[in-house]
Amino acid sequence: MAHRPVHVAGFAQLPHARINTTHEEAELVRITTAGALADAGLGRKDVGFTCSGSNDYYMGRPFSFVMALDGIGAWPPIRESHVEMDAAWALYEAWVRLQHGDVDVALVYGFGKSSLGDNDAISNLMLDPYFLAPLGITHRQIDAMQARAVLDAGLATEADLAAIARRCRAAGNENPNAPDTDLSSIEEMLAAPATAPPLRAHDYATRTDGAAAIVLRVGGGGPRIRGLAHRIDAHQPGSRSLTAARSAALAAEAAGVFDAEIDAAELYATATSHEVLLRRALRLGDGTAISPSGGALAADTPMVSGLVRIGEAANLIRHGGMRRTVAHAAQGAALQHNLVCLLEAT
């Protein structure tokens, strides 16, 4: 069945801050949803479906999305849903909903705070509670195991990883929505001690607080979603190849990324080694700019970063004159779960 043409009509994000003590859930959501609607030239009453992504563990409370709903003015009652995932998957649900033909505008938002808790401890709890979590390992440690496999397979050197970190942080320093980070030379970076060998602090995402919202619209112009797909891989790091982001490749293929010339890709890489693997999985050549915003290495707000990648990729078309861009979102350790969105100018 032919898909209805869904466009990114509006996008807004709060500047991602290392600590945001100014805004609680409803405020994060109110500001960004109002911003995205204004960006789209639409009002709250135009929205036919609303979907959000958030995670209680980052907000430190169960049902954190419930109070967030107070921020969008859900009265009279609205058609609404929520995923306990990165809001990129909320955008996926909204895109599916728009295919039914009875609603034409969807509002998607995500919010999260990394500053409220111990992110490594949370990532440990995300692991299989019977066989993995009791080992005390974290996502960053599994990512380091993957990075070791990447280096051993000759897919990159430690200097390559440092260059990725430096490029993303430099781009982030040009991005008004990402916090400023110190820029060291590659030599200085390589001289730093490893956090979890072979990865160093600079190889990991800059954890932030924030929110973002996107308005999707059937018709009406703006970057069109030409392909949107996601796939999950096996959970146990020992039961899949760590040197191939297989589920990212499957999602990219389903989204039609392999058949298109891509001007830029916004990748949700929370470790430099992820970027190495994602470039290969998405078959991105040297002609594709990688994460011009700085990506997650520059600013990584939990449950928001994936949605921001889609917004940033859309902005590269809307405001950057690009023809075709890709956005990527991920969840889990070592790129277990991946979403790929192909956007095209209209």
């Binding site: 995670n55 999305f65 929520h82 306990e84 649900e93 995300m126 299989d128 509670p129 096996a234 959970h235």
Partner: peptide
């Protein structure tokens, strides 16, 4: 809520048991 069992994002560790590996998988709440 994930706090009921203490496992955030349980889709990640349930993918294998539900035959979802290599497929799209979502978690609604």
């Amino acid at each position: 809520p994930d706090m009921f069992e203490g496992v955030p994002n349980p889709e990640l560790f349930l993918a294998g048991a539900l035959g979802a590996v290599g497929k799209p998988m979502m978690r609604v709440h």
